[in-house]
Simulated scan of single mutants.
Amino acid sequence: MPLVRICLVSAFLIGRVSKLLHFDAAVAKQLHFGLQPGWLWAGLATFVKIAGSVCVIANRFTWLGAGGLAALTLVAMLVANHFWRLEGTARFVALNSFFEHLGLIAAFVMVTYLAFGERRSRI
């Protein structure tokens, strides 16, 4: 199961390490989506993605880590994948991305549920 947890959060970890190395790009991305101040949102996203990933991988405070990552994913879905305002190919691409993110949120719910079950079976 540890490999599955690593795979689940790998995009968050890789992306955030890259954004830490190029924090100005992370700030610019937040500003692009209208999130002000960009440095605050970039810093918050960095903290949640790294800390949440560590919680999920370590299987400790999984509910908190997965919950934070799911909440951040939900915000990203609503801010970046506004398919309801698009048409044609752009709508198709955004709609697909929206539902991919929804599936990722479901995976975070599942990993939390499984971690809770593992803890209960040890008691």
Rank of each mutant, 00 (worst) to 15 (best):
H82A: 14
K29C: 00
F33E: 05
G68H: 04
F61Q: 14
L95V: 02
F47H: 00
V48P: 02
W63P: 01
I6H: 04
H82W: 04
V54E: 04
G103K: 09
G67C: 07
A90Y: 06
F108Y: 15
L13T: 08
I14K: 03
L20S: 07
M110V: 09
A90F: 05
S97L: 14
F99C: 10
A94C: 10
M1I: 08
N96D: 15
W84H: 11
L78C: 08
W63H: 08
N96R: 14
L21C: 08
V56F: 12
Y113E: 07
S53W: 11
A58F: 08
V93L: 15
P37T: 05
V111F: 06
L13C: 08
H82L: 03
F92D: 15
N81E: 13
V17T: 00
K49E: 13
V79H: 00
Y113Q: 06
F108K: 10
A107Y: 02
F23L: 11
C55D: 02
R122A: 10
L86D: 09
L95R: 13
F108A: 06
W41E: 03
C55E: 06
W84R: 03
K49Q: 09
F23W: 07
S10Y: 07
A71Q: 09
E100Y: 08
G117H: 07
L40E: 03
F92N: 13
T62Q: 11
R120G: 00
H101K: 04
S97M: 14
A11S: 03
A90N: 09
G65V: 06
A94D: 10
S18E: 07
I14T: 09
A115V: 04
H32T: 13
R91K: 15
A76S: 12
E100W: 05
N81Q: 14
N96S: 14
H101D: 15
A45E: 05
Q36K: 09
L13I: 15
I50S: 06
G88S: 11
A45V: 11
F116N: 02
V54I: 15
Y113D: 02
N81A: 04
C55R: 06
K49L: 00
